[in-house]
């Protein structure tokens, strides 16, 4: 893949921007050039939140999303927000618990229990890492080892083992 676009969407406080940063670091170490942007509302938690990666070989002229190859939806607030950017080649992963009404259309939609998996690990806040891992496992956009190294080295020591458990659980969801 020479050019692809990824969006992490949900509500503020879900760790979407962190997931995007992890994936971005992994892709750069695999030789890609990445532009990461985000949009959020002026509130601490809640509100529509998203982070996008435009991934290319060499700097992309326009660094914002124009057509999503991969979309992750972790909250119902974001369910329909990206419809204009989807096409028949898009892969859309939605949280089966937090997104009661997923988007419909001519694209590949997969429901997965990110939040439930995180809760079973003891902390539903790692749903972002479960989802990130599942997205990479499903898409093959970078290697398991590359992403795992990033998650391990960029997570504060206090949460490292929990994030690695979330990473492993997410990888086996797909």
């Amino acid at each position: 893949m020479d050019h692809f676009e990824v969006r992490f969407s949900g509500s503020g406080g879900q760790g979407l921007i962190l997931s995007a940063k992890f994936l971005s670091a992994a892709l750069v170490s695999d030789g890609y050039t990445v532009a990461q942007s985000q949009s959020y509302e002026p509130v601490s938690r809640g509100g529509l939140s998203r982070s996008d990666l435009v991934v290319s070989k060499g700097q992309a002229a326009f660094p914002l999303s124009q057509g999503l190859s991969f979309l992750l939806i972790l909250d119902g607030a974001a369910a329909q927000a990206s419809n204009d950017l989807l096409n028949r080649n898009s892969l859309v992963l939605v949280d089966s618990e937090q997104v009661p009404i997923p988007p419909t259309g001519d694209f590949n939609l997969v429901n997965l229990p990110f939040t439930k998996t995180a809760r079973d690990l003891g902390n539903k806040r790692v749903a972002n890492i479960v989802a990130l891992s599942a997205l990479v496992a499903r898409s093959g956009m970078c290697s398991k080892e590359t992403l795992e190294t990033v998650v391990r080295t960029k997570t504060p020591p206090k949460f490292a083992s929990l994030n690695i458990e979330a990473f492993t659980a997410g990888w086996h969801l797909v």
């Binding site: 940063k21 971005s24 050039t33 990445v34 532009a35 942007s37 700097q59 660094p63 914002l64």
Partner: peptide, 9 residues
């Protein structure tokens, strides 16, 4: 704001 908050390689 886009350029200020944009992350690039």
């Amino acid at each position: 704001e886009v350029i200020g908050h944009l992350v690039e390689t």
